[in-house]
Amino acid sequence: MRLAIDTSGVDQAMVVLDARRVLAAEDWVRRRDDQPVLARLEALVKRAGGGPDDLEAVAAARGPGSFTGLRVGLSLAAGLAYARHVPLHLIDSLPILARRANGDPAMVALRDAGRAEVFTWREGEPVRRMPVAELAGWLPNSARVIAEPAGMLATWSPSQAHLEIPEADRRRQSAALADSAIWTFESQKPLRYDEVQALYVQPAAAEERARKAP
């Protein structure tokens, strides 16, 4: 069985796959004093009818997203893959989000980055982090947009609110994760352990300051 974890956003998910079949899935919303993710993971693998010995590959969402969540997901995935000597994959988070759209994936995925900024992705372009004020200029005039949290486009760019796929037309995070994981397991090269890193769309603040300093 193969395991995929996405703890990068507000809506978090885990799936256990047997080839292309979902054996068990779980969705939850990030909360401050939640139970440890490993506790969920242990229960999920059990529910899928297996144990740690059955793991054949592991994947985790690599962001962009929550600093804490990413560290949890990536560390768990790295630990499991290393301990079982199985392939380790990382999956970009915003393409997963895009797959939450019913039918075809959304062309644009947006995730709240805090501090009046938003992570943006559209097919064929790298992920960016931009001030909310720049979003209106960047968004195509017609596109299917998915946002996290749902409904946020109305706040970020009211005139384009109609572009956002309504919450009722969204699938669960685990369904999107399963799709992305299947594609990744089947077509992508696994990583080495010293390559395990979250996706940062900008350098660390300290690096940035040092670079700008005279």
């Binding site: 490993l38 560290r71 630990g79 499991l80 301990a83």
Partner: peptide
């Protein structure tokens, strides 16, 4: 916190995976 999270999760994942 960022460093502790890595150790705590990676360590426990290894332990669980190896029983």
């Amino acid at each position: 916190i960022g460093c502790l999270l890595v150790g705590v999760n990676l360590g426990q994942a290894i332990a669980w995976a190896r029983g």
